[in-house]
């Protein structure tokens, strides 16, 4: 399956990836490919859109319609594509900075309008590509190039953010539970509505090194194991015990009318009912007497 899958969905000539050895991003990419493969999705029906940062390079390796946009803006571009190509599977691949800092507004509004896009967040709590500055998900107290004395702010919980904003499929996983991640991404893609999969991953180079984990991927992975707790286990833990931990699992999976279906329904209705009245011979638009 491995080579078949690689051949089917990868732009092999673009490999190796530009990611550092030991980076978690490659694992998420392979999960993503397996999800597409599991669902047996036609490549011509997939658009993958990204923002800026290490995660932003993901689409370049995948043989679908790929768009590497500006920082934080993957979702707006994806929205335009999805609205005009309702039959497409549209994936927005973002880093934590993309999703929760510069693109935070787009993220919550996509959730609110429940547009059928799958958002996959490569959440490593750091700006890797630019050299290790703090991100909105950097843990409290962690070190970064712009937090040399430790981060003083509390991190965003991307899952809570998505839930609060109305996303209809919300899950968190990590690179430590790969087969599960494949399925979660597949579930997210299948889901009709805005899906968010927050993936806790690692940046050994700019995060690990500064936070006593070193560049060793295994040390960094162990840190991921430390800070993630499966939902089941979390149920029996106290608030104190859960401080600084990311709970993994599916937080929401619900059916709700999504924007595309509502729009298509409206278009159908209007098509049957009318040609625009005010474009009739020369009747200009003014408010009628009883409304003035």
């Amino acid at each position: 399956m491995k080579t078949e899958l690689a051949k089917k969905y990868l732009r092999l000539e673009k490999l190796p990836t530009l990611w550092c050895s030991g980076c978690g991003h490659g694992l998420i990419l392979s999960s993503l490919l397996r999800a597409l493969y599991l669902l047996n999705i036609e490549k011509d029906k997939v658009a993958m859109v990204s923002g800026i940062g290490c995660s932003g390079r993901t689409p370049g390796y995948v043989d679908v319609h790929t768009l590497h946009t500006t920082h934080g803006r993957a979702i707006p571009f994806a929205t335009g594509i999805k609205l005009m190509k309702p039959e497409f599977y549209v994936l927005a691949v973002m880093g934590d900075g993309d999703c929760a800092a510069i693109g935070g507004n787009h993220f919550i509004h996509a959730a609110r309008r429940n547009i059928d896009i799958t958002a996959i967040v490569y959440n490593n709590g750091i700006y890797g590509m630019t050299g290790g500055q703090v991100s909105p998900t950097t843990p409290y107290g962690a070190y970064a190039s712009t937090a040399p004395y430790g981060q003083l702010e509390e991190p965003f919980d991307i899952v809570e953010l998505a839930l609060g904003a109305g996303a209809t499929f919300v899950a968190r996983s990590s690179i430590d539970e790969i087969p599960k991640l494949d399925r979660l991404i597949a579930d997210g893609i299948k889901h009709k509505g805005f899906s968010v999969i927050d993936v806790i991953t690692i940046c050994p180079i700019t995060f690990g090194r500064r936070n006593k984990l070193g560049e060793d991927p295994m040390m960094n992975l162990r840190w991921v194991q430390d800070i993630t707790v499966p939902m089941k286990k979390a149920k029996d833990m106290s608030k104190e015990e859960l401080k600084g931990k990311w709970i993994t699992g599916i937080f929401r999976d619900e059916d709700k009318p999504n924007l595309i279906d509502l729009y298509l329904e409206l278009n159908k209705k209007l098509k049957h009912s009318m040609v625009d009245e005010s474009s009739k011979e020369g009747v200009e638009d003014v408010r009628r007497q009883d409304e003035t």
Binding site: I75, P76, F77, T79, G80
Partner: peptide, 11 residues
């Protein structure tokens, strides 16, 4: 976002 969306749509 509106600028991004029209670019996506145009593609």
């Amino acid at each position: 976002a509106s600028m991004g969306a029209i670019i996506g749509a145009s593609l």
